[in-house]
């Protein structure tokens, strides 16, 4: 780790000059992008400074309960995000609950196994390892679950007549939704499949790049990256499957009916 080069805040500020240059061009050419660009940049600075402080605090505490609390807070934010990313989420508390349950089960399971079997820090829940790992797994699972649920619910609403035609022809609910289900699973799996396919050829993953910049041997960094990619893919896969199945069980019933009234009403606007 001897190769680590520390940055000063001045270095960071200099890097922001290029963003300011973009904003200036936007202003001069009346492109109208500068306001949002600056706002988002400032927001990012505040968010990351705060998270840096918080992580430093949690690492210093190095105590299991605050670590668990932080993980649960991340889960709650992710559940909110999963619901917000769907045009027609499940109505009521299930709109949050479905994402939360599936991400908790898949994300926690994979994180705990990775910490106790493979990475094995001491103690196994050490926040320096547990929180970044859970964050990476959760973030990717969240993307997959929200895309899959958005695809599933959108397709059920759009193709209601076709699904009901199959029900009327004596198909069971599971057979009737088969084409819709396949599309939703594809939507949920696409980002992680694309990421796995492109990694190392088109893009160098952020975590691996980070480790290399911090002076870790590239081959060691690759091992870590492979581990993470498998964990992410596994958690995303389990989370997407569980979310889609759970949602289908809510949106159909034992008499092989489609119950789309259990979706939240369509939102105005976007």
């Amino acid at each position: 780790m001897s190769g680590y080069l520390a940055l000063s805040y001045l270095d960071v500020a200099l890097a922001a000059l290029f963003v300011l240059l973009t904003a200036a061009i936007s202003l001069a050419a009346r492109l109208g992008l500068e306001g949002r660009l600056i706002l988002v940049s400032l927001r990012m600075v505040i968010q990351l400074l705060l998270v840096g402080l918080l992580l430093k605090f949690l690492f210093a505490l190095s105590s299991p309960w605050p670590t668990l609390l932080a993980a649960l807070f991340m889960l709650a934010m992710a559940s909110r995000e999963v619901r917000a990313r769907q045009q027609r989420p499940l109505a009521g508390i299930r709109g949050y609950g479905l994402g939360a349950t599936t991400m908790l089960t898949a994300g926690m399971l994979v994180t705990v196994v990775a910490l106790t079997v493979q990475i094995r820090p001491d103690p196994w829940w050490a926040p320096r390892y547990a929180l970044p790992l859970f964050g990476m797994i959760l973030g990717n699972t969240m993307t997959g679950v929200s895309l899959a649920l958005d695809g599933l619910h959108g397709a059920l609403v759009r193709d209601r007549v076709a699904v009901e035609a199959r029900l009327l022809l004596g198909h069971t609910r599971f057979r009737a939704v088969q084409p819709v289900l396949a599309g939703a699973l594809r939507a949920g799996f696409t980002p992680i499949l694309n990421a796995m396919a492109a990694t190392g050829v088109i893009s160098l993953p952020g975590m691996m790049t980070g480790q290399i910049l911090a002076g870790v041997d590239p081959q060691e960094a690759v091992k870590y990256q492979l581990l993470i990619m498998f964990l992410i893919a596994g958690a995303t896969g389990l989370g997407v499957l569980a979310a889609v199945w759970g949602s289908l069980l809510f949106l159909t019933d034992r008499r092989d009916r489609l119950c789309l009234e259990r979706l939240a009403p369509a939102r105005e606007g976007i």
Partner: peptide, 21 residues
């Protein structure tokens, strides 16, 4: 009987037909 079997005995053709393939 299960609903799917009932619907094979009592066929319904709705006003708007649905197609999936």
């Amino acid at each position: 009987m299960p609903a799917w079997r009932w619907r094979r005995l009592v066929g319904m053709v709705p006003a708007e037909s649905g197609w999936w393939a």
